[in-house]
Design a binder for these strands. Sequence first.
RNA 1: GGUGGAAUGGCCGAGAGGCGAGGCUCGGGACUGCAAAUCCCGCUACACGGGUUCAAAUCCCGUUUCCACCUCCA
Length: 465
Amino acid sequence: MELSLYDTQSRSEKIVTSKNSEVITIYCCGPTVYRDAHIGNLRTFLLTDLVVRALHVLGKKTLVVQNITDVGHMTDDFEEDKLLAQGKSESRSARDVARDYEGRFHRDLAHLNISPADHYPRASESIDLMFAHIQKLIDLGHAYVGTDNTVYFSAKSFPTYGAISGNTLEKLKPGHRYDYVDDGAKQFHADWALWKSSPNRNEMVWNSPWGTGFPGWHIECSAMSLKFLEGHVDLHIGGIDLRFPHHENERAQSNPIVNGEAVSQWLHGEHLLFEGRKMSKSAGNVVLVSHLLDKGLDPLALRFCFLENRYRSQMDLSWESITAAHQTLAKWRLLAASTQPTARDSIQALNQEVREIVNEIVSAFCDDLDTPRAMQILRSAVKSSLADNLKSSLLNAIEPLFGLALTRAIDVKEPSSEILQLLEERRAARAAKDFNLSDALRKRLDELGITIHDGPEGQRWEWKI
RNA sequence: GGUGGAAUGGCCGAGAGGCGAGGCUCGGGACUGCAAAUCCCGCUACACGGGUUCAAAUCCCGUUUCCACCUCCA
């Protein structure tokens, strides 16, 4: 089996292969670390994880690089610049802000069981790479120094501009949705800055061959991807909003350097909506991993929700769906914990029936990451008449692919002595057939977060979700 | 205006020309002292108008509406 994924540029599915070696090189656009990543950002980062997990299950090797944008992607206006403005509002340096949120980003990934990339290069530590890259583009005639000392890429110098997004230069009209002011600094309205001259700023600026300033937004990805993936990206991943202009410009900057297509395949993840709207500060519906933790929800319930939707579809999420996933996850973990799997280690050692289900699931992943289908296969297997120990084997076997920690021991808080006493009183009341008292105690325990299950074997309890 | 998508029951969502995926909610039943959990049953949908076909959610033409991107964006 091979992993096939939709490629934005060719608008068709392509099998993921390596161009230069047996290692598949993957670049994923990373976070700008001026705030916490919200769960929409994390959906895109999960996409990379799913690709990598699928490739590993197929026995492929990968090299994954994700940048950390701690500079660049900046504006001249202090108030508008995200890192500088955030530093100001938190009364600390932009650098401190960046390092802090970078750490939090890694914690969020860990909560969602997203396997780490092999390298996380920081833009601030790759400035020299960018200098070299920009200089080459100037030498090749693709870039020029404008009248404002900013270095611009000449869009017209790159004939296939627009191949990814469909926004070719004839179709891009200046000023349609923004106020375009032709100050004469650049030669063509669609040209963009590679190095932004900024003589008046004193924080987050560098001395370059073209004067003091900071890098343009797109150059870091070109420079870092080609450096850390040794000149070729087999698969480039990012959010759909990056398709234009970011990836279009990145392609224009990278291709001339390698004298060919620097990226074999472009993979874009669609956006996540929350309760019907795009997550934004103004809509007040930005959800963070920490919000899930505050509500006592397992962050992997979020991973579960993401898996139930196709990465190429816009997805609408709500607290209701996360809670439902949380409950299903808890049920499956109970099942996995209730019996010993027959075989833990290799797919070959599995019972044939289980092996066939695993194969179906792997092939759903290979079909452009059809995770909803994979989840459905798993769901019906869990509901089927398959013996419990085989179900348990199945949950173990697919763990490397799903990453839902289905076999994780259930995290149980110790009940307080009050709760233990109430439970004992209720047991006694039931034994004495004092149902008024036992019902009152059940209500009281419910208020303390305890759900009671009465069965033939007596009273059981668990923490409410 | 350009570009890329989408429209399926109360809700979320799969769908391959041919018996209506699945999940959640809700209603009914079994079980239970009563509940809960679990199991069983029920809720017969494909934006609109044409067309092709023995047969269309699926293919073709047209229309409408919605979302995203068009120099902050995952």
